[in-house]
């Protein structure tokens, strides 16, 4: 690997931008593909599939064996609301390799006793969220049920490219929330980004089950092909 390639890989990783190194294993020839160039790359379909799954793999193309080494940023989960569901959600998300942050201005909720080993920010969303630099590899959930906290948090998420936004509440609650958010400038497209009621429909009852439903929905959003993206050849078992 050329030093220049290694430097670029490290720079992209530091900036939390995905990058893929394509190596011809017969002779060591190598090139680096940045996320924004994948769509126009000759190997675009293969590259985007591997990136979506966050998996490196060997492929064959034009009679060559090419190794696609995928460097995807660690996914993050930002949880607004240090509530009972969050106490189940935070450790579950961590076991799925997410970096988790919990935000709640109510210090009685956001306490280390309730959230051992989880980074907690006991501030209002307008203070807590901007420094988190929420990016594409971030899932964002609002769970407080309190419009004073959830609404500004969701408005912040709309300004970001996070791959998932979810909010707790029934259809009725969500309809009211949509009205409030629109009154504060949110568009229909913004509202459509919110998964609500939150989580896959699995009949979840307990906080832990709701946490499972949420992480299942987030996983699907992260891993399944987007509409229009073709699912091509099977991936090599790894």
């Amino acid at each position: 690997m050329k030093l220049e390639t290694l430097k670029q890989v490290n720079a992209e990783r530091a900036a939390r931008r995905p990058v893929i190194v394509v190596t011809d294993v017969a002779n060591g020839d190598q090139r680096l593909v940045k996320a924004r160039d994948i769509a126009t790359d000759p190997l675009g379909a293969e590259l985007s599939r591997q990136l979506r799954m966050g998996k490196s793999a060997m492929i064959e193309s034009g009679g060559k064996k090419l190794f696609l080494n995928v460097y995807a940023p660690t996914a993050r989960l930002v949880i607004v609301g240090a509530v009972h569901i969050s106490q189940a959600l935070a450790p579950l998300a961590r076991s799925l390799d997410y970096d988790v942050t919990v935000v709640d201005p109510r210090t009685a909720f956001a306490s280390p006793e309730r959230f051992p080993d989880v980074p907690l920010i006991a501030e209002w969303p307008d203070v807590a969220l901007p420094p988190l630099n929420i990016d594409h590899y971030t899932a964002f959930v609002a769970l407080t049920h309190d419009p004073k906290i959830d609404d500004p948090a969701l408005l912040h998420a709309f300004e970001r490219d996070c791959f998932y936004i979810g909010a707790l509440g029934s259809r009725k609650t969500h309809a009211k929330r949509a009205e409030r958010l629109k009154a504060q400038g949110a568009s229909d497209a913004d509202i459509a980004r919110i998964h609500a009621p939150i989580g896959l429909s699995i009949g979840a009852v307990s906080p832990s089950e709701i946490a499972v439903a949420i992480m299942a929905e987030i996983t699907a959003e992260l891993r399944l092909p987007k509409e229009g993206e073709t699912q091509t050849a099977k991936v090599q078992a790894a």
Partner: peptide, 12 residues
């Protein structure tokens, strides 16, 4: 770069 069977560490 490639694994078969129960390999301890994945490709990459």
């Amino acid at each position: 770069v490639e694994t078969w069977g129960s390999a301890p560490r994945p490709a990459g």
